[in-house]
Design a protein around this nucleic acid. Structure first.
Lengths: 158, 158
DNA sequence: TCTAAAAATTTTAAGCTTGAAATATATTGC
DNA sequence: GCAATATATTTCAAGCTTAAAATTTTTAGA
């Protein structure tokens, strides 16, 4: 995560305003994440990365290859390896060899993983709604449209 | 970080809308963070946590105690210990005993740390503006006001 | 075919992060 | 003054995260 702090130096007004948006965005994300992380820990004895992997697999009944999983979650390959390992030893997911490509593995939820996640997801949705309770329906509408129009222009897109 | 994924189950329309806001917010934060992290690594051979610590200290000429630092950054105490250790060995910050309280330590930028950070901060502000370039000035204005009105209602606030 | 390049994944080393336990010091109440 | 409590910080164990290197298998090209 990045500097949740006030602007530091000079610069144009536009730059300062964009910086303010970023810092505010970051602060909100951090607060919500911290809260959700804590609740997952206390109520379900799990972590956010595990939850994220289960969420991605939940909507893909046929499972996902390791690489598909890591790109869906926007994290590195090696990262997924470790998380999936732990989920396997908890009995929530399985790794299945891909017929025709001995390099690849498909990761799938087990019935237990599916059941566990369905319960957590329901609760999680309530948490999010509750954390954003102070936002009026009207503002929420405006916000969702504005956010849909933000497209990060990373280095790769030149 | 949390589930950057589409909604999973049933629920009220309001809940779904709030969930959508959260997922969108999270996706944007992650993309921007990843981009900034990468640029800090490539251009300045540093990391986001280090940058954050330097930023917090930059605006506090008198320095901050470890606890003040960790609460400013919203991270754990133990976390700050490690980052500061590494910054000390890089010569960017110093730890000064607090006269009158032998438990506490003040952390301060060194002249080198101050100079390094000033340079990075300037560049960083440009990155942020550039990453949010697709946002019109008008939308940016609306967004900044909306975000200022979001107040996360965590468990601690009942 | 055979070899070079590409692809899928794991391993590794380093650093980040947390909550809980441990240490050391300070403050409060009796 | 002394005991209990609170505060400031570090240490610890476990897990998360990344980039880079290594491994294994597949694909493409001469």
């Amino acid at each position: 995560m990045s500097a949740a702090v006030a602007p530091v130096d000079g610069g144009t007004g536009i730059e300062k305003q964009r910086l303010r948006i970023w810092l505010r965005l970051l602060k909100i994300s951090r607060q919500m994440e911290a809260e959700i992380r804590e609740r997952l820990r206390v109520e379900f004895a799990t972590t956010l990365p595990r939850f994220d992997v289960l969420a991605a697999l939940y909507r893909e009944t046929d499972g996902l290859k390791m690489t598909e999983l890591s790109s869906a979650l926007m994290v590195s390959n090696g990262n997924v390896t470790g998380i999936v390992e732990r989920l396997v030893s908890d009995g929530l997911v399985v790794r299945i060899p891909v017929s025709g490509d001995r390099r690849a593995m498909i990761v799938q939820l087990t019935p237990a993983g599916r059941k566990d996640f369905a319960h957590m997801a329901k609760t999680h949705e309530g948490w999010v709604a509750s954390l954003l309770k102070t936002l009026s329906d009207e503002d929420a509408n405006t916000l969702v449209h504005l956010l849909d129009n933000v497209h990060i222009r990373g280095a790769l897109h030149k």
